[in-house]
């Protein structure tokens, strides 16, 4: 372990310790924040009693589905756009402005189209995540050395074979950047949509607990979101570093 990770762990531990101390000494009133240790204990008891298993499964199911849909369709759309340079030139300014549009505004329209439930939540999450994947695919394909493309032509590979055997592996490190963003955006899209309008899911459960002053449930679920985002991020970063190392070779 290097010095940075040690310092980082110390910093995070000190921060959590500070909050714990402030809560225990009632500098932060228990109405506002409960101590982190208590949050964790409550989270463990919630998981063991299975009170929120339905909501947790609902949210994670949605996140997994929307991340997969966004990553796979984003990759293929990116491939298609990349093979049409004129269309791409027209599309690029729109892609650059895409994330300036607050996508959540369109959520009610999706609710009318898909109904309350999986469909509209997945739709908004995919909408949020897919463009990051398209952009990453375009960048990745741009960076493929020309010689690889030529070898594919020499070997008379079909369009599909070229995509699968040449373009995908060569662009993988860049694509993975897109995957990381797409996963983060799916997470944000799913949880936020559940907050705004939904009958189940972690986001809904947090909003419900907040409205009913169940602050221990609320903080336990918030902690669950924080921990799962951190773990998923750490896992993705681990794979990312391995891919980057492969590119260095």
């Amino acid at each position: 372990m290097n010095i940075e990770s040690v310092l980082r762990s110390l910093l995070v531990a000190a921060f959590i310790g500070l909050i714990e101390w402030l809560c225990r000494t009632h500098v932060i009133p228990p109405m506002v924040l409960i101590p982190p240790s208590q949050m964790l204990m409550h989270l463990l008891s919630l998981v063991s009693t299975g009170q929120y298993s339905q909501d947790i499964l609902f949210s994670f199911g949605n996140i997994v589905v929307s991340a997969f849909v966004a990553i796979i369709s984003g990759f293929f759309i990116g491939l298609a756009v990349h093979s049409m340079p004129r269309f791409r030139a027209a599309l690029e300014p729109l892609l650059a402005s895409y994330y300036a549009v607050p996508t959540f505004i369109f959520y009610p329209v999706f609710i009318v189209v898909f109904g309350v439930g999986h469909g509209s939540i997945i739709a908004i999450a995919v909408l949020l995540a897919i463009v990051a994947m398209i952009t990453a695919t375009l960048t990745g394909l741009d960076r493929i050395p020309n010689v690889l493309r030529k070898s594919a032509a020499v070997m008379r590979m079909s369009r599909l074979q070229t995509a699968w055997r040449i373009q995908l592996p060569a662009a993988l490190p860049y694509l993975f950047g897109g995957v990381k963003l797409a996963v983060a955006y799916s997470f944000i899209g799913v949880i936020a949509s559940e907050f705004i309008l939904s009958g189940s899911g972690i986001g809904y459960a947090i909003a419900f607990a907040y409205n009913n002053f169940e602050s221990d449930n609320m903080y336990a679920l918030m902690l669950l979101v924080l921990i799962s985002v951190t773990l998923i991020n750490a896992a993705l970063n681990f794979f990312d570093r391995r891919l980057q190392a492969r590119r260095q070779r």
Partner: peptide
């Protein structure tokens, strides 16, 4: 170097979750 991963993680959190806080 110490702060970057923490910041990246904060960036990826769905911040709506923290709205009650």
């Amino acid at each position: 170097a110490v702060a970057e991963p923490i910041l990246l993680n904060l960036y990826a959190i769905p911040k709506v979750t923290l709205y009650p806080l």
